[in-house]
Structures are given as structure tokens and as C-alpha cells.
Lab assay of single mutants.
Amino acid sequence: NITNLCPFDEVFNATRFASVYAWNRKRISNCVADYSVLYNLAPFFTFKCYGVSPTKLNDLCFTNVYADSFVIRGDEVRQIAPGQTGNIADYNYKLPDDFTGCVIAWNSNKLDSKVSGNYNYLYRLFRKSNLKPFERDISTEIYQAGNKPCNGVAGFNCYFPLRSYSFRPTYGVGHQPYRVVVLSFELLHAPATVCGPKKST
């Protein structure tokens, strides 16, 4: 009989979030998941669920729940959905087409922007091929755009693959930082360890 609440607040209220290319994953298990708490945590810009209804979450049980978190800019949030393409979905964080879970995003301009520009958040701009779903690539190998090998040196047709967002508070919403948490629900042929409040007794 599990009584402890799932530590969603640790994920959502973390002081620092990860850069999207090096997104963070927390496995959540053996706890009571009260998803209604999430609705009250922040004024969400996005709370979209796929393959599951957000209002039914509190009635369900899962084997595992994974919470992935990272920062992107406002106009990239739409890429965090099944079947999307674009720089983020292709080279940084890719959801599977049959994704079961929820994408939660909110504006973090007050936390993640600086007047002089916050350069701490990076994204991958160049990659030889698209990522597979939930693949994480943290390599910093020089990207070869031409025929000549780069031998690890940046220059003509040889690019450092990561680029930094420079978040400034005066930017338009599309270029402001957004914190994203992706909850993916895993149903294996194994005992369910993460249940809503109704199912945990």
C-alpha cells in the first residue's frame, strides 16, 4: 500500500533546468501520483496529453512515469509533440509517434532571462542524422558540413554543433524561455507502482 506522493514538485520547481540537447530525465515510481497538483503548480502555457485524457490521469496506474525536463524558446514548444519536425524535434528531443503522456510548458522569462542575455541554455544546431525517439546526444564533436574532414577544428564548413540561446527579458514571447516537462507513461507487463490517489488504497 503506497502512500508517499510522487515528487513532481522537485521536477517542476527545480531551480535550474537542463539545456534541451542534454535534457534531464527523472524516473518516478512507487508513489501516489496526484496530477491535479500539477494544474495548480504554475499558470501553464501548455498542458497537452496524448493517448490519455488529462482529467482521467488520477484514475490510472502505470509501471513507471518518466519526467523529462529542459528549456526551449516559446515558438519551439509546438515541436514537443508526436510527429513534429524542426531543429528541436530533429536534433535535441524527439517524441515517438505513439507517445503516451503529457507535455507541460510554461513561460520562464522571469527566471531564465537576463538583461545582458542568459547564454547558459544550449541547443544542438547541427547533426548528421535525426534523433530516434527519446535519444539523447550530448556530443560536442565538430560538425563537418563540407567534404573536407574537420579534424576537430572549427572553421570553414566545420561547425561547433551547439548554439546558445541568449534569453533577454525584452524579447518577444516566441523568443522567451519556456520550461518544459514531458511526462511519459510506461505500461509494462509488470506491477503498477505509480497510481492516482483513488487507485492507491
Rank of each mutant, 00 (worst) to 15 (best):
N13M: 11
S29N: 05
K26M: 10
F160K: 00
T46H: 08
N118A: 15
V173R: 07
P177A: 14
L5M: 07
S116V: 15
L5T: 04
Y119P: 04
I2E: 08
D97P: 06
S200P: 00
N87F: 03
L188Y: 04
E10S: 04
N87S: 02
S116Q: 04
Y35A: 05
Y119H: 01
Q144M: 12
D90Q: 01
E186S: 11
G83F: 12
K110P: 13
L5Y: 04
F45T: 02
S200I: 02
Q144A: 10
F47W: 02
Y39S: 05
P43Q: 11
R16D: 02
Y66V: 01
V37R: 02
V115Y: 15
S184N: 02
Y123F: 04
F126W: 04
S113T: 13
T85A: 09
S200A: 08
S184K: 12
S36Q: 10
L188W: 00
S164G: 15
E141Q: 01
N151F: 11
N109A: 03
L41N: 11
R168Q: 08
F160Q: 00
P149K: 02
A67L: 00
P7T: 10
R163M: 01
R16A: 02
K148Y: 01
R78Q: 07
P43E: 03
S166H: 04
S129K: 04
N58M: 13
N87A: 10
R27C: 04
I80V: 12
F44S: 09
F44W: 07
R78T: 09
F44M: 03
K114S: 15
T193F: 08
L38M: 08
D75A: 07
D75K: 08
G83Y: 12
L125M: 08
R16F: 13
K56G: 05
L122I: 03
R163T: 13
T170K: 15
H189I: 14
K114L: 15
K48R: 03
Y39L: 05
T3H: 02
N109Y: 15
F160V: 05
L122K: 00
K132D: 11
N151W: 02
A192G: 02
T100S: 13
V173S: 04
G152Q: 14
S129F: 07
A42Q: 06
H189T: 07
K198W: 05
Q84G: 04
L60I: 06
K128N: 04
A22H: 11
R73K: 09
K199R: 09
S129A: 01
P54D: 10
P191C: 13
L122D: 13
F160N: 02
D9W: 09
N118K: 15
P133A: 07
Q84K: 08
S200Q: 01
A105T: 10
N64H: 00
R78I: 07
V153F: 01
A154S: 01
G83L: 14
K199C: 04
N120R: 02
T3V: 13
F62G: 13
T170L: 15
L57M: 08
I28F: 11
K148W: 01
V65G: 03
A190M: 03
L187I: 00
L41K: 11
T170H: 15
D97T: 02
F126H: 02
L111V: 01
G152R: 13
G196D: 13
Y91W: 14
Y178V: 14
F44K: 03
K148L: 02
G196N: 02
A33F: 10
T201N: 01
F45C: 02
T201M: 01
F44V: 03
Y39N: 06
S164R: 04
L122Y: 02
A154Q: 00
H189K: 08
V173N: 00
F160R: 01
I142F: 13
D75N: 09
L60E: 06
V115L: 08
S19N: 14
G83M: 09
N120C: 14
G51K: 08
N64A: 00
V153I: 01
E10D: 06
Y21H: 14
I142A: 14
S129M: 11
G83K: 07
P149H: 12
K198L: 12
I2L: 05
D9E: 08
N147R: 02
A22S: 10
T3M: 08
G174P: 07
T100F: 04
V37D: 07
R163N: 12
